[in-house]
Every structure is written in C-alpha cells, then in structure tokens.
Amino acid sequence: MTLRSPANRRHGLFAQLTLQQRFYVVAIVLLLPAVMLRTFTAFYPFLQTAYLSFHRYNPAFDHNGPVFVGLGNFQRMGADPVVQASISFTILFVVGATFAQLTLGLAVAHLLNASFRLRFLSRALVLIPWAVPMAVAALGFRWMFDDQFGIIPDLLRTLAGIEMRWLIDPNNAKLAVIAVAIWKSTPFVALVLLAGLQGIGRDLYEAARVDGANAWTSLFYITIPMLLPILITTGMFMIVWQLAVFDLPFLMTGGGPGFSTTVIAQKIYLESNSLNYGYAASISMVLVGIVAVVGVIGLTLFRRFDVSI
C-alpha cells in the first residue's frame, strides 16, 4: 500500500507514512487510554494476584516480601469451612437469582410490551430498582426483613398468617438475600428481553393463532425459542456478574448469621482486611476460575445455538 492522502500538504514523520500506516498510528492513539486504564487496573493486578496466590504474604509478618508456598494456599482452602460455605452459597445465590431473574424478567418484559394506557409509567418504573444504589437497597431490605421492626414479617403475618423469621435463620436469610438480588436486577433483565420481544415479528403469533395456538403454546414454541440466544447471553452475563457480588450480602446480613450468607467476594475481603494477601489472592483465583468455567460453558452454548457475539 503506497497510497498517499490527496490532502497531504504537511511534511514530517506522520506525513511520510502511507495511508495504511497512518491508520495504524491513529488506531494506536485512540486505543491507548482504554488499554492503559485496563492494564493498570485489571490486566497487571491480575498477574500479581496470580503470582501472590502461590505465596504466603502477610505484610505484618513477611517483611522480606512474599514467600513461595506452592499450592499451600489452595490446600489450606480445603480445610477452611468458611471458604466451602462461601462457595456453596455463592453458587446457590447465583443460580437461584439468575433463574428467577430470567423467568420473572420474561414476565415483566411481556407486561412492558403489552399495549395499555400506563405502559409509559411501567417503563419508567422498571428502571428504578436497577438505578437505585445497591447499598440503599441492601440496607432498606435489611430493615424491611428485620425480625422485630420490619414490615415484611409483619405484612406476611397480618395478610397471609405466615409466621417467619428471616435474618436470624440461616436458610431464610439466604432466601432473603437472593430475593433482594431478584428485586434489584429483574428489571434490567426485563429491559433486555423487551428489546428481544420487540424483534419478534407479529405475523408469527398471528399464524400460530390461526393454527390454534393459545398463549402458552405461543410462549413455549415461539417466544422462548426466538429469545433463546438473548436468554443465554443475558443469563451468562447475570451469572458472571453476580458471581462477584459483594455489597448486597455485606451490607444486608454482613455474611451472617454465622457464615450462612457469606459470598466468595466477602471472604476475599475479610482475608484482605486481615492482611492475608497470599491467601486472599488464592481464593480470588478460585473465583476467577469459576467465572472462567461459566464463560467457557457460555461460549460453547453460543456456538451450539449459533449466536453471534
């Protein structure tokens, strides 16, 4: 390529380059800030985390820097009940919340897509849970679920006659934390699915109706298959994103009662605060490993269902 720009009236290094080379220079300049930011806060620190995960490093004791321990940290995890509890709760949280978000999100998307007079209102309202700070939602619900002063136990008692203790019971506390995640993120899923619903042609439904399909058969034989690529993409996104959840359980239950609602991220936070940097790094690697496994499954599903990303 020896094309030269017709408008080239300048001289100097840049002017002597071919058009193609100039494009490369422009591309590098344009990409530089983004690549530098990500390198500084993601790629480089991740390499350090990987390095630290094979070392014992507590700056309060190890004054000569990290000490190599091989797989020592990972063996220690095997004997740490909190790590195991946090991994199992994180998986329960992510699977339960994502499944409910997709199911309810599809229902809400239908509501947002239905033609009725208050539709504009429903589309404004649906953004609110997504937009409200997680800290506000977590603390607000923490108070609403309070076993003594909360309105949720009170409403359940007066309206449905259900007597339930939430945050002091390990299993119900798990349920409560997952419920808040569903409340907070279902609207986001619904908005994405709404965009998908709007892309399905009406003629498909009309043809199905002529052939005698009812609402349910239309849902299972038209809507869900047509939305499958979006459902998979959104589901994967929600799983990966929620695997790293921190602020919700941290503020709502503090990980308790006991360690029943401690997520992996909070365990990492606790170990980091105790200056066990090496151990925290190895738990981080486990978290990244889980994310990677989900990612690979996701990519396989993408290929299988011929989704273009």
Binding site: R38, Y44, T49, V240, L287
Partner: peptide, 26 residues
C-alpha cells in the same frame, strides 16, 4: 484489533475484588 477487542470485553468478567490487593499496592 480482534485480540485487543476480545481482551477488553473479556475483562468485564474479572471480579473487582479479585485484583483489589495488588491494585491497592499499585
């Protein structure tokens, strides 16, 4: 260009908490 795009969008999956300690030191 594809490699850079992939690296940039895949880094969305990296949990914030997983790189917190090295980031703090840097």
């Amino acid at each position: 260009s594809n490699a850079i795009y992939l690296a940039l969008i895949l880094s969305v999956a990296l949990p914030q908490i997983a790189v917190l300690v090295p980031m703090f030191q840097t």
